[in-house]
């Protein structure tokens, strides 16, 4: 009946946000969402398997905080920090996660955190090439990605 419950629920929520929370819109939105998720099923994408729902708010909170912090740091670099030991550089990090959804979430986290950009993922080596605006300490960045984000993502998408 519903091949992608999470997608259907998100579509209904989006419909209601855009057109107002009324019973009529709920019925219309549900119809659209159900047909859309059937259309999605014929594309057969990998179904994300979320094991530990309760860790998602923790991840969101961590990322929210980190984005604020790195916004301030990058704004500082752009306004004042010319020279002064700032060294941009490339960084290759080996990853253990293989789940496509988890990789996509990690890419979104690293991209939306100013100061680090996800350049390319090597499926063969399972490494990711990052570019970092302020590469003072390589190990600090590796530690950040591996312990702060990857560990949590591996628990959520087990």
């Amino acid at each position: 009946m519903l091949p992608y419950p999470l997608l259907t629920a998100s579509l209904i929520l989006m419909w209601l946000l855009l057109s107002g929370f009324t019973p009529g819109q709920f019925i219309l939105g549900t119809l659209v969402a159900v047909f859309a998720s059937w259309a999605m099923a014929s594309l057969r994408p990998d179904k994300p398997k979320i094991r530990k729902w309760h860790l998602i708010p923790k991840l969101v909170a961590i990322v929210f905080f980190d984005i604020i912090r790195s916004n301030i740091a990058v704004a500082g670099v752009l306004l004042f920090g010319r020279g002064k030991g700032r060294r941009p550089g490339f960084l290759t990090i080996p990853l253990e996660i293989e789940d496509r959804t988890a990789l996509a979430v990690l890419a979104i986290i690293l991209t939306s955190t100013p100061g680090s950009a996800w350049l390319e993922y090597d499926q063969h080596d399972r490494t990711v090439l990052l570019h970092v605006l302020d590469l003072l300490d390589k190990n600090e960045w590796i530690d950040l990605v591996k312990n702060r984000y990857e560990k949590l993502l591996m628990e959520i998408f087990a």
Binding site: V74, L78, L79, P88, S112, A117, H131, L133
Partner: peptide, 23 residues
């Protein structure tokens, strides 16, 4: 936007607009 204009290399420049797309 200022950073996008001022940073010297392409790989550094891609960091600047992420300020606009995050906070």
């Amino acid at each position: 936007a200022i950073g996008f204009l001022r940073l010297p290399t392409f790989y550094e420049r891609i960091h600047a607009p992420t300020l606009g797309t995050s906070w």
